[in-house]
Design a protein around this nucleic acid. Structure first.
Lengths: 198, 198
DNA sequence: ACTCGCTAAGTAAGCGCTTAGTCACATAGG
DNA sequence: CCTATGTGACTAAGCGCTTACTTAGCGAGT
């Protein structure tokens, strides 16, 4: 009982530190954030960070890996959600865009702080990104194969679709007038126009 | 004459420092770049930077302002290049996308290092960005007014068009297989599909 | 029941190092 | 001699991270 309590308390502290790091990295970038910033945001002393994590870079890696894995799961689920390429792509772009809006702080780190990762961590993350690209590319190819899509350069269209979603992390603000669901729905329609479905 | 020579030599040195800073900021970010990185890249001693520039932030500001002014000029020229909204938008997106590919190092700083600017410099830059947004928005509105475009949410379509171009700065590599002209042409076609022209 | 030693969580202080920026001085052209 | 250009040596401040230490809760031995 008490053991369990201790473990969950430690986990909560780790999570607080990760949340603090996410906010700070998203706002000021990895190199613009100090370990004191993170500790202060989490309401702890600078040394507490090192009780729970090996280094500042490890915090970045954990945030980046978690975010990438969530996105990969979301994209693969959407790709497999329907036999119909139109419906699969609609859901993929909808969920991808809405997720980038909801988790825009994390998504900012995921997409714009890759260069601050260690070479080993970067290699691991890059592999996940390639799986995301492939899942999207497969849906586009399915649509071309069935004749549902019509685009002169499918690979470039795929890059553009990803850009649309990723860039949301750059411009989205919580106090804006568009909800993540609005954005997801509109972006899904734009995506279908881009690939010539309709 | 010799006075002129001296001035142009100084200008060349300033330009070398700006180029070095552009490369370093684009690769490692403003906070991840040291003044020694910049000076070394420019082939000078660390102190030489301060002969020609007030601070590291001033370098960022100069790079950012120059880049934004170039983009604004390009966008306004494209918007005014044709009475036909379809042709104006085609040229705008083509030039915007191709320029982000050609100048991707500078464009990366322009779009992803805004938070590192001083508050005063940021305010100035933001004003330029708003003029860019407005120029694009005007073209989209013209297309809607003439019935050439058809889109349920023109403001969101405008944001998406900008995202398409801006995100090129994130993924474009000089050794890739697509030329800036290829990208510009394909992206212009995708843009017209997004706004429902066609 | 009650110490005792063990462990995990957390901190105050500060180490070794790097940072942006400064300054006295050297050099060269006029 | 004067000004513009550039440098090596320097400084104050801030960085990531470590260390020595405190505190609190736990099971084991008696």
């Amino acid at each position: 009982m008490s053991g369990t309590t201790d473990v969950s308390r430690a986990d909560a502290t780790r999570a607080r530190l990760l949340e603090a790091a996410t906010g700070a990295f998203a706002e000021k970038g990895f190199h613009g954030t100090t370990t004191r910033d993170i500790a202060t945001l989490a309401g702890m002393s600078p040394a507490a960070l090192y009780v729970h994590h090996k280094s500042k870079e490890e915090l970045l890696y954990l945030i980046s890996r978690t975010g990438h894995e969530r996105t990969l799961a979301l994209v693969e689920a959407a790709a497999a959600s329907s036999e119909d390429p139109v419906e699969a792509l609609r859901r993929l772009v909808h969920d991808f865009a809405a997720d980038h809006a909801v988790t825009h702080t994390g998504a900012r780190i995921v997409n714009y702080e890759l260069a601050a990762l260690s070479p080993e961590h970067f290699a691991e993350i890059r592999a996940i990104r390639q799986r995301i690209d492939r899942a999207l590319g497969d849906v586009v190819e399915r649509g071309l194969a069935t004749g549902a899509f019509d685009t002169p350069d499918p690979r470039m269209a795929g890059v553009a679709l990803l850009s649309l979603g990723i860039d949301i992390a750059r411009w989205y603000r919580d106090d804006g007038s568009w909800s993540p669901q609005d954005i997801g729905a509109r972006y899904a329609e734009m995506a279908l126009r881009i690939v010539g479905a309709g």
